[in-house]
């Protein structure tokens, strides 16, 4: 102890009165400009405007409507096709097929995942199948689909199912396996039936992964559909967006080609940024499972 006394410096105890006077700002709202600058959507709109400007200027400088139409010409073509109803009809046509393929893919993915979760051989089957087919671009199956199903919509639905099935099944299965052991024990502790266990513990617990699977599946299906339509072309009921683009190219209406591409982009953005984002905000973000 004598050592300690020599090494340590002796000081008296001190206490202070704490008040909030003279601190300055404890909390104050940000200015309008600061709040606007913090708005991610607004900043991205600004980027879009700048890109459109660059496009317009470059196209005018190039002055070749067959190679690269101006932004304004594209908008005009978009508006014309929109007003005549041609674009809406093509979009509706594409969407109908897409939903058929997407829904069928989801149902099959659900069945496959259920089988994989219930039995070990099912899990092995799912893993082998996804390992084999996930890297295979759906569009590569198109020649085969044409031979099997002819030139109808069935062929497109077939490749769409392939585009959706594997990513959804893989992500859902991984999600189920990643459900925390604590939640599993909680579910068992309160005596849930096996159906209740799946619907009330496993599915919500795996929801971040399931949603990721749905998003990837959607993106694959959307790209595959447009590509398939370019090849399949029209049949009895009319043509989709891919066909609209293909036709416009054949008649050298390049601004309409761009308008078709713009529509594809817009629809993709709407689904990803409104539908999926809203789903995310209402579920996993609200639950704090994703920040």
């Amino acid at each position: 102890m004598t050592d300690a006394r020599q090494v340590l410096t002796a000081r008296p105890d001190v206490t202070y009165e704490v008040t909030n006077t003279g601190v300055g700002v404890v909390e104050r709202p940000l200015s309008l400009y600061q709040r606007l600058a913090n708005h991610g959507g607004l900043r991205k709109v600004l980027v879009l405007v700048v890109l459109a400007l660059i496009w317009e200027v470059y196209a005018r400088w190039l002055a070749n409507d067959l190679l690269f139409p101006t932004f304004s010409a594209t908008i005009v073509a978009f508006w014309d096709a929109f007003v005549t109803g041609e674009l809406i009809k093509a979009t509706w046509y594409s969407m109908k097929i897409l939903f058929q393929g997407y829904a069928a893919g989801l149902i099959l993915a659900g069945l496959l995942t259920a089988f994989a979760s219930a039995t070990r051989i099912g899990a092995d089957l799912l893993e082998v199948l996804t390992a084999m087919f996930n890297p295979l671009p759906s569009i590569a199956l198109l020649p085969l689909a044409m031979i099997w199903f002819g030139l109808g919509n069935a062929g497109i639905v077939f490749v769409l199912i392939h585009a959706v099935l594997w990513s959804v099944a893989l992500n859902t299965h991984a999600g189920f396996r990643g459900v925390s052991p604590t939640w599993r024990m909680v579910g068992q502790n309160y005596g849930l039936s096996s159906f209740g266990y799946v619907t009330r513990i496993l599915i919500p617990g795996a929801f971040p992964s399931i949603l990721t699977g749905l998003k990837i599946g959607w993106a694959f299906a959307w790209r595959t559909l447009i590509a398939a339509e370019l090849v399949f072309g029209a049949n009895s009921g009319g043509g989709g967006l891919g066909w609209f683009i293909f036709q416009s190219k054949n008649s050298l209406e390049i601004p309409s080609v761009f308008a078709g591409l713009l529509t594809v982009i817009l629809l993709g953005l709407i689904v990803e940024n409104f539908i999926f984002l809203t789903a995310e905000k209402m579920t996993i973000r609200r639950w704090g499972m994703q920040t």
């Binding site: 925390s180 604590t182 939640w183 024990m185 909680v186 579910g187 502790n189 309160y190 005596g191 849930l192 209740g196 009330r200 513990i201 919500p204 617990g205 929801f207 579920t283 639950w287 704090g288 499972m289």
Partner: peptide
């Protein structure tokens, strides 16, 4: 079984997709 209820060390024992009230009501209804 529900006659022996476990309280765990982990904070994630509450189901994040349910509110505080729903977490407790869930146990009672399940």
């Amino acid at each position: 079984g529900p006659d022996r209820v476990l309280v765990f060390q982990e904070f994630d024992q509450l189901l994040p997709w349910k509110t505080v009230k729903q977490n407790i009501a869930f146990a009672l209804t399940a």
